[in-house]
Design a protein around this nucleic acid. Structure first.
Lengths: 258, 258
DNA sequence: AGGTGTTTTAAACATCCGTTTAAATCGTTG
DNA sequence: CAACGATTTAAACGGATGTTTAAAACACCT
């Protein structure tokens, strides 16, 4: 029978998975369920990240983990159970990285730079060590039932800190939605260096890529754009400098699909 | 035999697809190959965009088109041939939208705003009419053999115009790589409203979404950020205001994976 | 050792997909 | 009309995948 996640015995007592009854970790009843289970969990992350949920095959994951194909059914119920557990592991790591840091209280500009640099370093990490952000990206593109949990647990914390830093940077009476726009602008720029990595690699000459697209330079650029917009450029957004010429009907576009 | 993508000797039945000899388009030999073929092509786009290349099934496409399953093999050789042809149709439309417009010569700020608004309107279009951008996004995430062609034919033209507008907006001696960074920042913000649409929908309260996230407001915001950064904020990027405190060792991050 | 519950294994199952085949249908022409 | 090529159809093939099964291997305890 499966060890912990479900049990459908028809007549005997049924240890259902109401909450987590894994509080008792008696080493006698569960001597070492970690060996295969943990190896499976560790091997699944990179494969899911590289291939996506559908294209990733249980056979490849089990091959990497060195366990039998039936093990995923034995330990996680099915493929989606394994996927879900991979995200639970990520969530723990993300929460630990973003929540206990509010005791430091850096000045807003530096806080913003640290945030951008940290997030960007995750995005630009090579696949071996940076598979977590790639996995989250795949979940954004092809949402499963995990999606909403992932947003709340792994995306909202850094986003809230972004909003906090930008709110402290913007003029005092800045409305909330403007700060949110700014935060999304920063997030979009960061994410693009992962989503559009392939495009960028072909759009920018190779020499310039190697010379001017290092982690530090990109973080500095994004932070600079955000500060410029937050401190000085917000007035432009509300000024009617674009409206006058563009509202009635522009040159040719904006209705190619209606 | 297949009508257009292959044509071998008429006497021997050789269904091999060696190359494309689709030069002759005699209407007598091909009376109306448009009915099934065009319907297939029209139905394939949205399905490929919604599901991606792998998850999209020939059976669903043919079901939507109202043709038999074998038709895709008959008209396009195989699934990838159909995919390739869908992109060829997109390419034509994209080239027509961006190339012949350089005769207008708007002032840089307005040119930038028009560009942003145009691209954003493509990104935010609902799936029925905006499947083209979604398809390109899927190709960015899971590149096939089409990828490089797509970048050159469908992405570089608008990117070059972005670089042009931002270069005209920035101070005269601005180096090229800074302008490219700016262009990527704009592109990243635009793309994020499609890639991160699901995230944004959960991150921002619904009322604020409906009130402040219209196409025009987003275009205005992105343009404002770009102008603020291009005109005034570039000096910040090169100033060493972040370096002093952050170079040796910061607070806790940037080495969570080593 | 024998027995018991847990873990591992190899094999099979059912399903779905892309592709192919060979026959049927249709349209045009001699 | 009959014949021929172009198109369409239904059915099947081969392969891959997730899942299940039943037996084997194992660890532990009395």
């Amino acid at each position: 029978m499966s060890p912990s996640f479900q049990a459908d015995d028809p007549d005997v007592a049924e240890p259902l998975l109401e909450g987590n009854s894994e509080s008792v970790a008696d080493p006698s009843t569960e001597p070492r369920e970690d060996d295969a289970r943990a190896r499976l969990l560790a091997a699944a992350g990179p494969v899911f990240a590289r291939q996506g949920f559908d294209r990733a095959t249980i056979r490849e994951i089990c091959g990497d983990a060195g366990v039998n194909i039936a093990s995923v059914g034995y330990y996680f119920g099915d493929k989606l159970g394994l996927y879900r557990e991979v995200f639970r592991a990520i969530r723990s790591k993300c929460q630990a990285a973003f929540q206990p840091q509010d005791a430091v209280e850096l000045p807003p500009r530096q806080e913003l730079f640290e945030l951008v640099r940290h997030l960007l370093s995750r995005m630009l990490a090579p696949d071996d060590s940076g598979w977590e952000s790639q996995l989250m990206m795949r979940e954004m593109d092809n949402p499963t039932e995990i999606f909403s949990e992932m947003v709340e647990e792994s995306i909202r914390p850094p986003f809230d800190r972004l909003v906090g830093a930008l709110g402290a940077l913007a003029p005092p009476q800045t409305p909330a939605h403007v700060v949110e726009h700014l935060a999304l602008s920063v997030a979009g720029q960061i994410v693009y260096y992962r989503v559009g990595a392939g495009v960028i690699r072909r759009l920018i000459p190779a020499e310039r890529l190697q010379q001017h697209f290092t982690l530090d330079q990109l973080a500095r650029h994004i932070t600079g754009v955000a500060i410029a917009a937050a401190e000085g450029g917000l007035a432009l957004t509300h000024a009617a400098q674009f409206d006058a010429e563009t509202q009635p009907n522009t040159t040719s576009d904006a209705h190619h699909s209606e």
